[in-house]
């Protein structure tokens, strides 16, 4: 999933207090799971804005709404559109995709990002999320016993650990596992360590962000011009 973290309260307050009527728009998918921008977090921000505006003597109205997904046209239903129309500005707690999608759908509305989108990751344990994928466009994890050096090595090294691997941890952050320590351990267990003596040649980054913004087309799924839903 996409993992995000709520922006600092003061930033959000500064944005909200510029308007008379603000809608907090939550997203029910990834940011709900990582507890950054679901219904619960929308409610907390709502309470916080109300308390702060009282403390600071500002006067603006806050309303809330959460939809299943902000990266999908389908979930911006009539009720949502009505609520957005009724507000002067929207703070969306969806990931960067949702923020943009919402802006595209309501071009006349001021839309603010309520969270910082951080990475594609997993819930490693309750309350702890870690990065696992960098979306490079050409998956190579199977060469490395299922551990991605692109996403999980601080230097994206593809031919083994750097000199900074220490006791299984990365020199950049003592809390972070050295991806290469994990790869070596797993390949040793699988008895495939010698496979690492093959040189991994320079990676083709054209499939990654470096190749420009990417798009995927499934012709078989696309609707004919006439049957497309009206925006």
């Amino acid at each position: 999933m996409i993992v995000a973290e709520r922006k600092l309260f003061d930033d959000l307050y500064a944005k909200a207090s510029k308007h008379k009527k603000v809608l907090l728009l939550g997203c029910g998918t990834c940011v709900t799971v990582c507890m950054a921008g679901g219904e619960k977090e929308v409610d907390i921000l709502d309470s916080q804005l109300k308390l702060a505006s009282r403390e600071r003597g500002d006067d603006f109205e806050v309303t809330t709404h959460t939809i299943v997904r902000q990266c999908d046209d389908e979930f911006f239903d009539e009720e949502t559109s009505r609520k957005i129309a009724a507000a002067d500005a929207v703070i969306t707690l969806a990931c960067g995709v949702g923020v943009q999608f919402c802006s595209e759908k309501y071009p006349e509305k001021r839309v603010y990002a309520g969270v910082n989108t951080v990475f594609y990751g997993a819930t490693v344990e309750q309350g702890l999320w870690e990065e696992r994928c960098a979306g490079c466009g050409e998956c190579i994890v199977d060469q490395f016993a299922g551990i991605c050096p692109v996403a999980r090595c601080a230097k994206s090294l593809m031919n083994g650990p750097c000199g900074g691997s220490s006791n299984g941890k990365c020199e950049v952050d003592k809390e972070t596992d050295c991806a290469w320590a994990l790869i070596v351990k797993r390949m040793k267990e699988l008895g495939t360590l010698e496979e690492l003596s093959e040189i991994t040649l320079p990676k083709d980054w054209s499939t990654s962000r470096d190749g420009g913004p990417r798009r995927i087309v499934h012709e078989s799924l696309r609707l004919d011009e006439g049957t497309k839903k009206e925006g």
Partner: peptide, 8 residues
């Protein structure tokens, strides 16, 4: 020669 993992 001293960095971990030693076996690699």
């Amino acid at each position: 020669p001293f960095a971990d993992p030693f076996e690699i």
